[in-house]
């Protein structure tokens, strides 16, 4: 079904009914290619977070299909969905969602342990990922001892621990200052270079600008799609260095 790694067909998610019916996602078709970074932008309440939840099996659509790596996931049993969420998808949230009582390395390795990896293999993988996100020296720190940007990098490490088919990020820079935002974008760039597929919903233009493709969403539907390949080569002009 479809050529994409992540595919949605006529996807619909309604909440409530009658007068209170909310058309959160209202007929979305999406194909995300292997290795592609897609950003979905739109005002709050446009349905972008709901869409992300549907793509990652956190929520079930009201109708039609979601496919992940050739597998239709909207019809999976709860058990199968739970396994998919652990291993097929890596989630990154605005509020980090780290376990406060676990250290950085323990947070990263947790999904690997839940997926049945040996403690030793899980720890090795988690240690390597913390190195990759530039936090090797913070492995034994609790989240409360880390800055917001560092917490988000731990959360990205955790999202990657089971080598997911796709990373789904919901406002990953929403709580970060500009330096930490740049750190996260650098990390996404690394992931992209390594062929990781990423879908990110955001209203941060900085995140959107670094994607391969930008989708604008309004009232549960896509209203505009833009490929963002190629730069302008006019940075000097922007800085006021020319003329």
């Amino acid at each position: 079904m479809g050529a994409g790694l992540v595919v949605a067909r006529e996807l619909i998610k309604f909440y409530g009914h009658g007068e209170g019916l909310v058309r959160a996602v209202d007929g979305v078709d999406l194909d995300v290619a292997q290795g592609e970074t897609v950003a979905v932008m739109g005002p709050s309440g446009c349905g972008k977070s709901t869409l992300l939840h549907l793509l990652g099996g956190l929520d079930r659509p009201s109708s039609r299909e979601v496919w992940l790596a050739g597998q239709r996931i909207d019809e999976l049993s709860e058990r199968e969905l739970a396994r998919l969420r652990r291993t097929g998808v890596g989630f990154v949230f605005q509020g980090f969602h780290l376990m406060d009582e676990l250290t950085a390395v323990e947070n990263v390795e947790l999904p690997a342990l839940l997926a049945g990896r040996s403690p030793r293999a899980a720890r090795n993988r988690a240690t390597k990922l913390l190195e990759q996100v530039g936090l090797a020296d913070r492995a034994a720190h609790l989240p409360s001892a880390l800055s917001g940007g560092q917490r988000q990098r731990v959360a990205i490490g955790r999202a990657l621990v089971n080598e997911p088919v796709v990373v789904l990020a919901d406002e990953p820079t929403g709580n970060l200052d500009s330096t930490a935002t740049l750190d996260v974008l650098r990390l996404f760039k690394q992931l992209r270079a390594a062929g990781q597929t990423i879908v990110v919903v955001t209203h941060d233009e900085r995140v959107a600008a670094t994607a391969d493709r930008l989708i604008s969403m309004r009232d549960g539907a896509f209203v505009d799609q833009t490929r963002l390949t190629g730069g302008t080569g006019r940075l000097g002009d922007l800085a006021g260095l020319e003329g």
């Binding site: 740049l182 974008l185 233009e205 900085r206 959107a208 600008a209 670094t210 930008l214 833009t226 963002l228 190629g230 730069g231 302008t232 080569g233 006019r234 940075l235 922007l238």
Partner: peptide, 8 residues
């Protein structure tokens, strides 16, 4: 957005 991408 293309300019922002360059700057980023």
């Amino acid at each position: 957005l293309r300019r922002l991408r360059d700057a980023q």
